[in-house]
Design a protein around this nucleic acid. Structure first.
Lengths: 181, 181
DNA sequence: CCCGTTATTTACCGTAACGCGAAAAAGTCA
DNA sequence: TGACTTTTTCGCGTTACGGTAAATAACGGG
């Protein structure tokens, strides 16, 4: 593909778990070209400026296979929210709860989105080709992740609600002798 | 705390989802000091060189609260593995399976570790203070995440095994007339 | 007194990954 | 002409890191 096409299709494929704007894509393409991993061929177009379509070279394909055989290291889940939880008593609870509710919505949305894609691409839940198997597995981990995090958000929201206004039971036991101190 | 103490205690607290070596810690401490968010006080020690213990200033505490009230953006899960799944047909399956098995072990280990910490810190599963509530929630999302990913790893390993040697059923139906093509 | 070790901090040098804002080049359409 | 799309590029910056090593201070052993 060309850089422009990559930039446009990025969001609907890998974009779910990796961001890149067009600048970065062009930059990486340049690097790969310099290393001889890809090669650009100008494709003449009518009605538009010509585009530079890149294709993998032999060395590029070999490098890709080699990269694919390297062990991956499980990524850190760098999340502001988790840092806040580590020192929860230093923060205000209310904005955190609001944040969690936004997150809950986000993860539910994502879940629904993945589910829709799954039903569309794999109505019977089975992949036919190797490439499809990979995409199916990607969707599966996406679904699992979003569900787990969404459930946790619900739990966290409840927990924080209890923290925000603590021990209502005790207040109900005997309200006649104590005022809101 | 001092930079040295922070570096030592980092791994057993936030270190589960955020890495930082001592250099980065010292660097960040310098930045924070330059911004007036923390202040260093030399503490004389006997038997060791003196240390520089940092404490939050008024502005630092305010900045922290302010930061804590900002909405967080859900982090990307940048994972090599997911990229490989996106183009599964360009890679060799075997090293991927090996990778997945290592990952499975890793996530199971993590799960067990979190479980141990949970049982130690919260034997009854309940937090008493606000700070503890945060730590408990941190453990909970850790457990949920590790379990989800570990289960997915099992699924993925099985799926890839089926891809590696496809359709064994057909071979079993009638082995008398066909050899291993 | 030199030496090795631990604790504590700092300096210096690099890089990968990224964002911002702009602009260049080529073509269309009003 | 001017505005707008497509396609690519440039030049600037930052953040976040990693590596290696050194400086500083105190201890203890030979």
């Amino acid at each position: 593909m060309s850089g422009y096409e990559l930039a446009k299709t990025f969001d609907s494929s890998i974009g779910f778990f990796w961001k890149a704007d067009h600048q970065q894509i062009y930059r990486e393409l340049s690097k790969l070209r310099d290393r001889g991993h890809i090669q650009g061929h100008e494709v003449v177009q009518s009605g538009k400026p010509n585009k530079l379509v890149y294709t993998l070279t032999q060395e590029g394909r070999a490098a890709l296979r080699h990269w694919g055989a390297r062990p991956s290291s499980p990524p850190m889940m760098k999340d502001d929210l988790l840092v806040r939880l580590c020192a929860l008593d230093s923060f205000d609870i209310e904005p955190l709860r609001a944040d969690l509710m936004a997150r809950l919505e986000h993860h539910r949305d994502r879940y629904a989105r993945y589910e829709r894609i799954l039903n569309k691409l794999f109505p019977d839940g089975k992949a036919t080709s190797v490439a499809d198997t990979g995409k199916l597995l990607g969707l599966r981990i996406g679904l699992r992740h979003e569900q787990a995090v969404a459930e946790w958000c619900e739990e966290a929201i409840e927990t924080l609600a209890a923290v925000a206004k603590p021990a209502p039971v005790l207040l109900l036991e005997d309200t006649s002798r104590e005022s809101n101190g």
